[in-house]
Simulated assay, not measured.
Amino acid sequence: MNILLSAVGYWLTCKLISLCGEMFVRANLFGVDLCKGTGVKIPESQGVLCGVVFLVIMFLFIPIPFIEYFTNRGTFTFPFHVYVEFLAALLSICCMVFLGFADDVFDLKWRHKLLLPTIASLPLLMVYLVTFDLTIIIIPAPFRSLLGYSINIGCLYYIYMGMLAVFCTNAINIVAGINGIEVGQSLVISASVIVFNCIEMSGEYSEAHLFSLYFMLPFFAVSLALYQYNKYPARVFVGDTFCYFSGMAFAVVAILGHFSKTMLLFFIPQVINFLYSVPQLFRFVPCPRHRLPKFNPKLNKLELSYSRFKPTELTKLGRIILKIASIFKLVHFRKVTVKDCEYEECNNLTIINFFLLIFGPTHEKTLTNRILLFQIVCSVIALFIRYPLARLFYDV
């Protein structure tokens, strides 16, 4: 039934996107593709349609896992803990779809982008507390002689899970700006989670992984429909709504599916992007409002975009970081003269620009495909870490 509803969700999402595009443009919810320079108005915030269809599917699906208990009343005890987890998960996702759409309309500041997922994750953490409340971490075998077999870290584990929700929602948002990249990376991550859930279905937490599949299959279906319209050349933009929606969907299944640490393994490219972006995110290096690649109309390719600043605007720590990174060819740091004024420039610190630094000017479609291929390779590495490598360190 879940697969059937997911197929319906794919079809319905495609229909809604094709029918509602002009409606969004008339409501001034549109954007211009800065990586093409055509000036055509493209419907924005289409992630809200994707999120709404997903929620409708999941609302319709709510009774299905519990039919056995409805038809055999008195024989089975109703699994209230699963029901509560289901509703809390939908509440958090619904909250992020709403807040993401508010961000698209009002263009919220970064401090709000960090606060909103934290608030939306509170229902998840409360449900985890009353239903599972496992805060023990297993120590790798080489360190057990010093630290023991396990450690109960208590409230620190809840802080970690709250930070995971913030990271997931913003990690998708940071790797953005070229056609298909936000939805594409979400498709790869969700497909990786589905594979992982299927592998674990015969394990100790099979019920939790089945719960995850209930959410990931419809998510994959509606995201695939959105990708058909957002891939190069994009006919719609996904907006921050989709980034918030997808990030919270991943956080939900990671927390309530009890594989929050494994989920981070599927975010390896996003973790790399975050670490690479730290100097700009924390303002050690001046950070512009947008860090999109630069479009070269003569070559019809994307090139490195730069952050330009006066030498006095660069902090001492930022200068040290850029000099070390330049030595290892991780950034392009240079001095320029504009109208007799001395400036310094470094390429914007995103994984998209890093790929351009490595491969040079690249067509937008090729660039997206390379990053998504890297995402797939990282998912394969994540599964290798989770199984052969984990068995080596944890004796399982």
Results as ranks from 00 to 15, higher is better:
126 M>W: 11
16 L>T: 12
23 M>K: 10
287 C>T: 03
51 G>C: 10
76 F>I: 10
72 N>T: 03
117 P>H: 06
85 E>V: 09
279 P>F: 06
383 L>P: 00
225 A>P: 11
231 K>D: 08
260 S>R: 02
15 K>N: 10
14 C>G: 11
358 I>G: 00
9 G>M: 14
333 F>K: 01
284 F>H: 13
396 V>G: 02
293 P>K: 06
364 E>L: 13
229 Y>Q: 13
140 P>W: 07
249 A>G: 03
296 N>T: 14
267 F>G: 07
314 L>D: 12
386 R>Q: 08
10 Y>C: 05
271 V>N: 09
44 E>V: 05
125 L>K: 06
54 F>T: 06
4 L>F: 12
230 N>P: 13
18 S>F: 09
37 G>H: 06
278 V>C: 11
211 F>N: 04
284 F>L: 10
357 L>T: 08
50 C>A: 04
243 C>R: 05
7 A>P: 07
355 F>T: 08
16 L>H: 12
230 N>T: 11
21 G>Y: 01
284 F>D: 07
103 D>E: 07
287 C>V: 06
313 E>C: 10
114 L>F: 09
77 T>N: 09
246 S>Q: 10
260 S>E: 15
244 Y>F: 14
4 L>Q: 00
74 G>S: 02
328 F>W: 08
341 C>A: 03
248 M>C: 06
94 C>H: 01
142 P>E: 14
346 C>R: 07
130 V>R: 02
20 C>M: 12
375 Q>E: 14
318 G>E: 06
166 V>H: 00
83 Y>N: 01
203 G>C: 11
8 V>E: 04
200 E>D: 05
119 I>K: 00
334 R>N: 07
182 E>W: 06
82 V>M: 09
84 V>F: 10
169 T>D: 09
141 A>I: 13
241 T>H: 06
